[in-house]
Structures are given as structure tokens and as C-alpha cells.
Simulated scan of single mutants.
Amino acid sequence: MIAKIFPKSSGSFKKRIRYIFGCTKHDHAISEIRTISLNCLAADPLPSLQGGSEKGVLAMIAEFDQVETMRRMSVDSDRPIKPVFHAMLSLRPGEHLNDEQWAQAVQTYMHDLGFGEDNKYVVVMHRDTDHEHVHIVANRIHLDEDFRLVSDSNERAASMDSASDLEDMFGLSKAPRPTETWGTTFSHAEVKAATSENDIPHKARMIAKIAGCIERTQAEGGDMFTLVRHLRRQQVYIHLTKNEEGQPKGIAYEYAGKVISGRKLKRSRLTFHKLITQEGISYDPETIHELEIEIARRDQDDQNGVEKRFVYVRFFSKTRRFDVKFEPKSKAEREIDALVEAIQRFLSAIFGIPFESKKEKERRESKYVEYYPDIALTRDMFIAAKMREHDESPSI
């Protein structure tokens, strides 16, 4: 079961209630809508809607809106509030709950989020897709003497926990937690635009690029510098916001001219805090100045031509010489030096001779042993290279 809470809003409930009952321009035909439960004085508006009248819907809207009017008359406060709550519970394709089970599920879910019988609510089911789902519209204002608001502190965590409990209660398949996936939701406008252009939503493309870079960084045991370089190669750039101590407190991602905060992309994985504490991307606060310099770069890290992608190194002693071409993960000096040192140790271990190295940029005419970071070096590589060199040398 997927539980989604839509952004809360102030003002009238008109837009949300008309939407869930199929009065606005969307794909939900009224015949595919069923009222599951409500605690309003107003009658179920579906019968009148099926007869072509919105009179019942307007009566329900007025009842929901009246609660905030009563609160303003009783509570001496100018603090703005957002009483309009809208959530959706959705099953996987092929799963089903009957009306009584849906009513029980919604009652449990709303109780877990802090709603009570003194909160106006209405629940309807839409059946026009391959997965059953219900919409919940509720008023966050309690109809008590204080007109308290339902707290939204830790709301999303409570929502996920409640959905998990409902899966167990009704024997439904377990949906992965947001921290276990890269999936996200997209607005109707994003999906519509992507469909018309035969493309996936911009946000989905951005998340896919970022997710791949994070996973590559994790596989390499890399740090924040490594992640920045991988992102840059995907033409994704980051922007940091800093706290009073000059340390990162927020992160946003830029791709194709659009900048979206990590919180809006996927708050459970892509904020700066989550990158460090959950995704395991190490960061040393002492390196903030160097990190900002790295972030400011806009070149593509060795992606603009073969001559920039490879480093050519010649290892030689008095009697032996090997030319090695390798492709580093980055052109950062410390990584190149580490790779060179590793090759030197390898050659020294094989031949028992201390080797010196000289970097040569333009040596394409030489016969190289090619080294890639994800392929282990073996002695056979060097033997094969020497045999090729011998076979191709002119005979006397």
C-alpha cells in the first residue's frame, strides 16, 4: 500500500472536494467513484451528481469551510493556518479491499495521524485505474472548545508506519520504504508534458542521473568530491547553502538549466544530511573551501576527446621498458598518483626491479598495456604485450 499526503492548503475545501467527486477536468468518471465513509451532516453528494446537480457537493463544501469560520470567531489569533488535508491510499494492481475493509483501513490511518471523530472528513474510492485507491479529504481543525489543529509533526513517518501496519492487517504486499528506492511521484503537468514530448519527466531523468552517481560513488568508497565529479560528467551540478558556521546545510541539483532542491527531489535520500548519514558519502568539514572550488567547475572531466581521457606512463629500468596507458576515474592529482604508485608496486613485485616513471602525454604510437580501474592487472597482460611487440618488429 502506498500512502501519499498532498500539500496542505488554506482557504476553501472547494477544489479538493470537487476533485475527489469527479466535478473537475480529470479522468475519474463519476460512475467509477464510490463514497466509502464520511462524518458530515451533509448527505452523500454522489446521487445528486449522477443526476447532474452539484447541490450536494456545494452543501458539503460549505460544511467543511464553516469550521474555520467558527474558529476565527472563537480563537484570538492571526496566525495563518492550513486546514485542508488531502491524502491517498493506493493498492498494488491486482489487490482488493471491500468497502468495509477500506473504511476500517482509513479509520486506522487517520487515527495514526492524529485525526478524531471531531475532524470533518470524507473518503471516496476511485476505480478507473488498474489499482484501487481512496482519496481522503479532512479538516485539520478539531471541533472542540479550543479548535486545535491536528499536528503534522513527523507526519510522513507516521503515514509510512501506518501504511505498513495496514499491509500486515489485510495481508497486502509490502511496499518498499522511500529510503530503499529511488522512485518518486510526479505532477500531472510533468507527466502530461513528458508524454507530449515522448520523454520522461525532467525530475525522473534528474533523479536517475543522481542515483547512478551516488551508487558509483558508494561502489568506489568515494567521498563528496567523487560524487561531485560523477555528477559533473552527467551534466548535473550542485549548489550548497551554508549555515552560520560556513558548513553545508542544504543542497540543490541543477540539470538542463533547472535547479531543484534535494528535499523536493527526494527528501528521504537526496538532502545533504541524508547523503552523509544515510548514503555513506563521506565529507570532511575541513575541506569545504576545496569542495566549493570543485563544485564551481563546469568542465566535463576528461569527457571531451580521447586525448584527455587517458594517461600514458612509461616504466623503465636499464634493461626493461613498459609503456602503460590507463584510464583514471578522475584527473585529480592524488588519484592519478595513487594509480601510478599501484602500477609501480605491481611491476616491481613481478620483476624484482625498482622502476621509475615518466608521464608522457602523446605516445599513441607505442604499444601499451591498457589498464582500467575495474579490471585487475595480471602478469599475462605484460607477457602478451611483449609477444605482440616482438611479432610486429621488422625481421632482419
Score class of each variant (00 low, 15 high):
5 I>N: 01
8 K>E: 05
12 S>D: 08
12 S>R: 07
14 K>Y: 00
16 R>K: 02
17 I>W: 00
18 R>E: 03
19 Y>H: 05
25 K>W: 13
27 D>P: 02
28 H>Y: 06
33 I>D: 11
34 R>Y: 10
44 D>R: 01
44 D>G: 01
45 P>W: 00
51 G>S: 15
59 A>P: 03
66 Q>L: 09
69 T>N: 07
69 T>D: 06
75 V>H: 10
76 D>N: 12
79 R>P: 05
79 R>I: 03
81 I>G: 05
86 H>N: 06
90 S>W: 01
90 S>R: 04
99 D>F: 03
100 E>N: 07
105 A>I: 05
108 T>C: 07
110 M>D: 02
113 L>N: 15
117 E>T: 09
118 D>Y: 03
121 Y>R: 13
123 V>F: 02
127 R>P: 05
134 V>T: 02
134 V>H: 01
146 D>S: 10
147 F>W: 04
147 F>Y: 11
149 L>G: 05
151 S>T: 02
153 S>C: 04
153 S>L: 04
157 A>Q: 15
158 A>K: 15
160 M>L: 11
163 A>G: 14
164 S>F: 09
167 E>F: 11
169 M>I: 01
170 F>Q: 00
177 R>E: 13
177 R>G: 11
180 E>A: 08
193 A>W: 02
196 S>R: 12
196 S>K: 10
198 N>S: 10
201 P>R: 04
219 A>R: 02
220 E>R: 10
222 G>M: 00
222 G>T: 00
223 D>V: 00
224 M>L: 07
235 Q>T: 08
240 L>M: 12
241 T>G: 15
242 K>C: 15
243 N>C: 04
245 E>M: 06
246 G>Y: 05
248 P>K: 03
257 G>Q: 14
262 G>N: 11
266 K>R: 15
268 S>M: 13
271 T>S: 11
275 L>W: 01
283 Y>G: 09
286 E>P: 04
291 L>A: 07
293 I>E: 08
294 E>S: 07
300 Q>I: 10
301 D>W: 01
304 N>R: 14
311 V>N: 08
312 Y>D: 05
321 R>Y: 12
329 K>Q: 06
330 S>Q: 05
330 S>L: 01
336 I>A: 02
336 I>M: 05
343 I>K: 14
344 Q>C: 06
345 R>S: 08
349 A>V: 09
349 A>L: 12
349 A>E: 12
349 A>Y: 08
351 F>R: 07
358 K>M: 10
359 K>H: 10
362 E>Y: 12
364 R>S: 14
370 E>L: 06
376 A>P: 14
378 T>G: 06
381 M>D: 11
388 R>Y: 08
391 D>M: 07
392 E>M: 14
393 S>V: 02
393 S>H: 13
395 S>D: 15
